[in-house]
Design a protein around this nucleic acid. Structure first.
Lengths: 197, 197
DNA sequence: TTAATTTGAGCGAACGATCGTTCACCGCAT
DNA sequence: ATGCGGTGAACGATCGTTCGCTCAAATTAA
């Protein structure tokens, strides 16, 4: 193919590389403890050049936030493709827990949340993807209930949110303790999700 | 009593006042966006004087973290004093949700967590109090189960953690949306907690 | 095709602001 | 007289961002 990359291609690659490097820095040092110079140095790029690709520091974390949110889309797809709703839910719990339990993912999430509190721009696509995931999840919840109709059941929307809460909470505790969730904890989690249905 | 306060008394009052002012600043602007000068100015205290009372900026957020953790002790007491375990749990859910739903409390919590990731000193008393609360909660969980013995039940310790996860998750969502949890949400939450038992 | 021109990636010094912290000094309570 | 709460100027470092510049690729004109 093309041995030489077009200008647009190298620019895109550079841009991507800068974002990834920024993510690494934010994970290791935190958003506010990371200077543009740190990112530039680590990415092997000049200080000023970063401003040729990004409006500023905020756009960097915002872009990372959307990248994180995009990972939810994959989980959502798997959630939809599995026919048996209960099996789909079980697999989702395992997969989403595995994602949230990654120290790098957790660290980034915390930085993003802390920043999003005061900067609505960052929340951007993040909430949209999550909202979409919640809706899908709620659909599977209601599907898994067919047959056992209890009129005291938790509204499926709330049930979906609670499921995410449980997964994220367990993951956060594990990450803070510097370990992966144990099999026992995963079993408890699956049990809890089942009992919420 | 004493019209004039002793030197030690005024010093303690000053210290307290500085911590509270710092908390306000951290809530409004975030930890890293707040300068020592901001705190000094707002507290009506000289810049250098803050260093007569605190080692530095980190000690301020650490002290705030312990203050936040102390609020958990009150909830724990209520949890123990109510005889009926199920009623105690219901009341706890309501009270802890109310606490976590306060925007100021939530904002501080996020700042503390984000900072605690890279500074173990801050976690200090925070995790101890939480651990104690979890233990108490687990005790009430097991008490509320007496009579209905299902051998598939979630371990009480996990059940206690899950309960906190649900409360905190719901509260965080409400705060992020700029509202209080609705009565419907509270009802769903209580229902969910019951189903976890 | 070649020549002229525009475009934008890439660079690093420089800017002004602000950061956390220290310091020498002051004055009152002990 | 001693010590400590209180002060604010000053320090060195670092911050995010801007600026003028170079140069090669892309585009247009010839």
């Amino acid at each position: 193919m093309n041995e030489k990359l077009s200008r647009a291609e190298t620019a895109d690659a550079r841009r991507k590389h800068i974002v990834e490097t920024a993510a690494i820095c934010f994970i290791e040092q935190g958003f506010h403890q990371t200077g543009i110079r740190d990112i530039a140095k680590r990415a092997g790029v000049s200080l000023g050049n970063i401003y040729n690709h990004f409006d500023g520091k905020t756009e960097l974390i915002a872009e990372i936030a959307t990248l994180e949110a995009d990972e939810l889309a994959e989980l959502q797809e798997q959630l939809n493709q599995t026919e048996d709703p209960l099996a789909a839910l079980e697999a989702f719990v395992t997969n989403y827990l595995a994602l949230c339990s990654q120290p790098a993912y957790a660290a980034l999430t915390i930085e993003i949340i802390a920043e999003a509190v005061r900067n609505p721009k960052i929340v951007g696509g993040f909430l949209e993807n999550r909202e979409s995931l919640i809706a899908t999840l709620a659909g599977r919840v209601v599907a898994s209930r067919s047959g056992t109709t209890a009129e005291t059941a938790i509204p499926e929307r709330d049930c979906a949110e609670f499921t995410l809460d449980l997964i994220e909470g367990l993951a956060m505790r594990a990450v803070f303790a510097g370990r992966k969730p144990s099999k026992k904890e995963l079993a408890s989690l699956k049990q809890a999700v089942k009992q919420l249905l």
